[in-house]
């Protein structure tokens, strides 16, 4: 899903550089207010984790495989804006050092895979979680909402990519011919994303609930060692 250079026209990638740059500045401002500058090592190592997790391919069907995106996971664990910034760093390094995704298309890739799949889906997730929390336990509502919205994050990122390709009209295909395959494949890859994200957060909730940003933990007792401190 990393768009290389040459597939987008100037108005598309130029606009998306503006949007992504503006959002990055806002996220930086938000994070600086809430996060201790000294916590930067944590974010860096989380970025390395997302990067390594993306190298684990999972099978979709015999022969075809997808890889993990991790934007929703980063947002749920670190908060929407810190998660967004971690994804920005991951995408920028993939572009500059690994040549994965073009330099001109970097703004578009950040828009799709960090903004749409990150904060945009995160805020929908947070709304759904608090709605469900009125009836269900926080753990259940968090995991159920997360499963759906992490699936949606991959589908929406794919759809955004398809919209950009058809607006650019560099590849002279009808919108249907672009949308069908991209959204179809991403709807399947999204299942993998949803399963992995949900399992990871479920395990982390069990082992270290304090590491999950969007979990307030009203209905759970902290492990004994932490209560004793």
């Amino acid at each position: 899903m990393h768009i290389p250079d040459g597939l987008l026209d100037f108005k598309t990638w130029g606009t998306l550089y503006g949007v992504s740059g503006g959002t990055t500045a806002y996220a930086l401002y938000k994070v600086r207010n809430t996060l201790d500058e000294k916590k930067i090592p944590l974010l860096g190592i989380t970025a390395a984790f997302i990067f390594a997790a993306q190298l684990l391919n999972f099978p979709v069907a015999a022969g075809v495989s997808g890889h993990f995106l991790g934007a929703m996971l980063a947002c749920v664990l670190l908060g929407p804006w810190a998660g967004f910034l971690v994804m920005v760093v991951v995408l920028a390094i993939q572009c500059l050092i690994f040549a994965d995704g073009g330099f001109a298309a970097l703004g578009a890739n950040i828009f799709n895979m960090a903004l749409i799949a990150g904060p945009v889906c995160y805020f929908m997730f947070a709304a759904s979680k608090s709605l469900m929390n009125k009836r269900l336990s926080e753990r259940t509502s968090l995991l159920t909402s997360l499963a759906f919205f992490s699936w949606l994050s991959v589908v929406l990122a794919g759809a955004a990519c398809a919209v950009e390709l058809s607006i650019s009209n560099v590849v002279k295909l009808s919108s249907g011919a672009i949308f069908g395959p991209i959204v179809g494949v991403n709807a399947i890859i999204g299942i993998g994303e949803a399963v992995i994200t949900t399992i990871v957060v479920a395990v982390v909730l069990q082992a270290r609930p304090d590491l999950v940003y969007s979990y307030s933990g009203h209905d759970v007792k902290l492990p004994l060692s932490e209560e004793a401190v």
Binding site: P41, G44, A52, A53, I199, V203, V204, R208
Partner: peptide, 15 residues
């Protein structure tokens, strides 16, 4: 999923 989860926990503890 379980591999990614333990990878995350290990990386956080390392961090």
């Amino acid at each position: 999923g379980h591999m990614v989860a333990s990878l995350f926990l290990r990386s956080q503890e390392r961090a």
